[in-house]
Design a protein around this nucleic acid. Structure first.
Lengths: 195, 195
DNA sequence: GAGTAACCTGTTATCAACTAACATCTGACG
DNA sequence: CGTCAGATGTTAGTTGATAACAGGTTACTC
């Protein structure tokens, strides 16, 4: 129904992504050319770049940020900022973890093991940080949020990244939500005098 | 005058870096080819890559990390981790700031304004995080530091990055050390119930 | 001081990521 | 049915980055 166009677009998009991940797992990221991915998906290499601005974006792109932004905004404003982010994140992670654990592990492993991707991760994390900042800020306020809010957001992103990194490094055997809880605990006890 | 070689090496290295920054300021990062930089420094484009593994590294490389690692390690171990990092950093920043303020601003501005550089910043930050982790850990311990220490390190790097970003965004008019203090304050009050 | 090994550099060729220009086709819509 | 916009392929070109080889220069030794 409505616009078959978009359906086809979504299908080629998925075909490209799936072909890419399959080839990456098979021959490694560096040894997989864009042309090969495109051929595998039945399109030309130009079409690839019309769907993904760069080779790295196939792996880096995800659409968690807008969801998290909303979840943070929906938190009761009387909670301190870190609490709002923490509760919002932990309200969503377990479900995703239960459902996409394997895919998440593969993607994260690839991300951390490939220099080209690892170096561009900062970009993605920056997007998450911005989403967190927006979720914490009054949407009426138009200018940049105060420094304190930005620090909270960046610290949360850093903590979550550290948790995922630790999870991947131990082979994905541990419980990721638990690690995230630990990481948030470490953040909350940053100010207390004893460790 | 031991080894003329190293002196010459250092000179071409500087010539390349200076030519690069000059051309970047003049024509922008993207519109400056590696071949042009090399020509400007009087060498071939291959020589450029023998000194810098990539075009981005000319801007990204710095040698603060080992210094900071030592400064953190020299802190009294009875201080809580965040304090050790904070005091170490703030013991060194003002001097650097007084002396290299302009250069630091130019470099940071270029870094934040150029997508290609911004996206690879994470790599550099990752190095700083590792340095912080090592400074916080017992050097006798060989395996990876505990999650809590890694979260502290990553949060500090994130806070400092946020401070520098804010500093650049306001045109470098403010006082960077003061902003860093604010950022650390925000970190320390992460756990307290009121804002 | 000659000889040799190590190092640095330039030339050339090649690869792969990415971009631009143009032609083509195929649904969408009146 | 006819037009039009969006999606795709072809081709060609730019640029960052690597490899192989050759020539020259510095250091080290006998």
């Amino acid at each position: 129904m409505a616009h078959w166009r978009e359906q086809k677009r979504e299908r080629t998009r998925n075909a490209l992504r799936e072909a890419a991940f399959r080839l990456f797992a098979e021959h490694g990221y560096e040894d997989t050319t864009v042309a090969r991915i495109a051929a595998e998906a039945g399109v030309s290499h130009m079409t690839f770049f019309r769907y993904f601005p760069s080779k790295e974006d196939v792996v880096l792109r995800d659409d968690y940020d807008p969801v998290l932004e909303e979840l943070i905004r929906a938190q009761p404003p009387e909670k301190p900022p870190l609490r709002r982010v923490r509760d919002a994140v932990m309200s969503a992670v377990p479900a995703v973890y239960a459902q996409e654990r394997q895919a998440l592990l593969l993607r994260s492993r690839l991300l951390l093991a490939t220099p080209a991707l690892r170096s561009r991760m900062g970009e993605s994390l920056n997007g998450s940080q911005t989403a967190f900042e927006r979720g914490l800020s009054d949407p009426a306020e138009t200018d940049t949020p105060p420094l304190a809010a930005r620090v909270v957001a960046s610290a949360c992103v850093a903590a979550l990244t550290t948790a995922i990194t630790a999870w991947v490094e131990e082979g994905g055997t541990g419980d990721l939500p638990a690690l995230m809880d630990q990481a948030f605990d470490a953040l909350e006890s940053l100010g207390v005098p004893d460790a």
